[in-house]
């Protein structure tokens, strides 16, 4: 391994500072004891974290986001697993078209998805409903679940399944005892990535959500466009801490770099 020079290390320090600065800023401001935006120079205070409890709309929005992400990620995985097995393992006419179709939301800007759903739901009377939001999120995150499932299904050793068949297992037993356990890490990773993508999504949801079905990012966005105060900083700090926990889990089990290669 070649050594890095002092210039490289200085650059690295600056880069890391650039990456962390806004996050640290948010955390710092959330601990202020003043009633306005300021750094906690006169000591730390938790008053803005207590203030979250007095703002049920943030808490409601948080639960909408959690529930939405849980359900949509689960549906996305249920769609993605059989599809990934078919696409990765079988040859059939239209295979590539189907794969491209199911991955296509990755190429569509969220804004375009948002306006499309806005018009569609207002036409069919689902405007602002939770189910509309749910369906939109499933469309948005299925490609993420599919891609990780595809990666596992492609690497699956055919021989292991054939061996199980020759040993007398039924097709279903082979799926349950051999195939599923082998693709499970990819599927679980896909679920988690889908969950986070849904949880963080703003641009599309801003068009689809009504005041009653506001997700946390949408609620925060509307708050920020009105006013930027320490309250929004404390909400963000809570989010940063929660995300950090999820990040450690993801990195522990999959490696962040593997999950993100080609995301976007």
């Amino acid at each position: 391994m070649r050594r890095l020079g002092p210039i490289a290390l200085c650059f690295h320090a600056l880069f890391v500072a650039f990456i962390l600065a806004p996050l640290l800023m948010v955390v710092a401001v959330s601990f202020t004891d003043k009633g306005y935006l300021s750094l906690p120079t006169d000591g730390l205070s938790l008053r803005w974290f207590r203030a979250i409890l007095d703002n049920p709309d943030f808490i409601d929005a948080f639960w909408v986001s959690v529930w939405l992400a849980l359900v949509s990620a689960t549906i996305a995985v249920i769609i993605a697993v059989p599809a990934s097995l078919a696409i990765a393992r079988k040859k059939f006419p239209g295979r590539e078209v189907i794969a491209a179709f199911l991955l296509s939301p990755l190429m569509i800007p969220h804004l375009v998805l948002g306006v499309a759903f806005l018009q569609f739901y207002s036409k069919i009377g689902l405007g602002g409903s939770f189910y509309g939001l749910l369906a939109a999120h499933v469309i948005l995150i299925t490609p993420y679940a599919l891609r990780l499932a595809l990666a596992s299904a492609t690497g699956l050793p055919r021989e292991a399944e054939d061996a199980a068949l020759t040993l007398g297992a039924s097709r279903f037993t082979v799926f349950r005892r051999i195939t599923l356990p082998l693709i499970l890490p990819g599927v679980a990773g896909g679920w988690l990535l889908s969950f986070i993508t849904s949880f963080d999504e703003l641009t599309m949801s801003v068009f689809v959500a009504s005041p009653a079905t506001q997700t946390l990012p949408v609620r925060m966005y509307h708050h920020i466009t009105q006013t930027i105060d320490p309250l929004i900083a404390s909400v963000s700090t809570v989010l940063i801490v929660l995300t950090f926990g999820v990040m450690l889990i993801l990195d522990r089990f999959y490696g962040l770099d593997k999950i993100f290669v080609g995301k976007g």
Partner: peptide, 13 residues
């Protein structure tokens, strides 16, 4: 993994 809203808020501050 952190919401874009949160990251942008940091710069707004």
């Amino acid at each position: 993994l952190i919401s874009v809203v949160v990251r942008t808020l940091g710069w707004a501050l």
